[in-house]
């Protein structure tokens, strides 16, 4: 099903660049692509496997400049349920804005019928925003937090 190559995506990005649209959602079977333009920033050069190595040292500081690359990615709720920021009431939250996360970092839990399901970030990066409120229903696919990919 996923018939999109990297160069296809580059072509799509170019098309958006030359258009007036700020956002594009594309669904082809299993594949889902969401692109969003941040501000008036140009060339959203896809940030991919190139810059992983020496990031961990300077987490918070990076957040602002990296914005230029156009992206913040949202961590979607993998299932419907009640979203909790912390392991139990009164505990500090799993993550807060500015925290560095890896793809395996637990960012919250979703309760469905007294069953707790931990949610992981799914990508390496820095938390830029907590979107879903604590203790409220999140639907499947709803954005929970936003992270700036490393």
């Amino acid at each position: 099903m996923s018939g999109l190559t990297r160069s296809d995506i580059d072509d799509i990005l170019k098309l958006i660049d030359s258009s007036d649209f700020d956002e594009l959602k594309l669904e082809m079977g299993e594949l889902k692509l969401e692109l969003r333009r941040r501000g008036s920033s140009p060339a959203p050069a896809p940030s991919a496997p190139e810059a992983p190595a020496p990031k961990a040292a300077e987490p918070v500081a990076v957040a602002a400049p990296v914005l230029v690359s156009g992206g913040g990615s949202e961590v979607p709720a993998p299932l419907l349920g009640t979203f909790y920021h912390a392991p139990k009431p009164g505990d500090p939250p799993f993550v807060k804005v500015g925290d560095t996360v890896t793809k395996d970092t637990v960012i919250g839990i979703i309760e469905v019928m007294k069953l707790m399901n931990s949610v992981t970030a799914g990508a390496d990066g820095v938390v830029t925003e907590i979107l879903a409120p604590n203790g409220e229903l999140v639907e499947h696919g709803q954005a929970l937090i936003r992270i700036q990919p490393a």
Partner: peptide, 8 residues
């Protein structure tokens, strides 16, 4: 999920 969604 249905119960949770209905209550929520």
């Amino acid at each position: 999920t249905v119960i949770e969604a209905a209550m929520g």
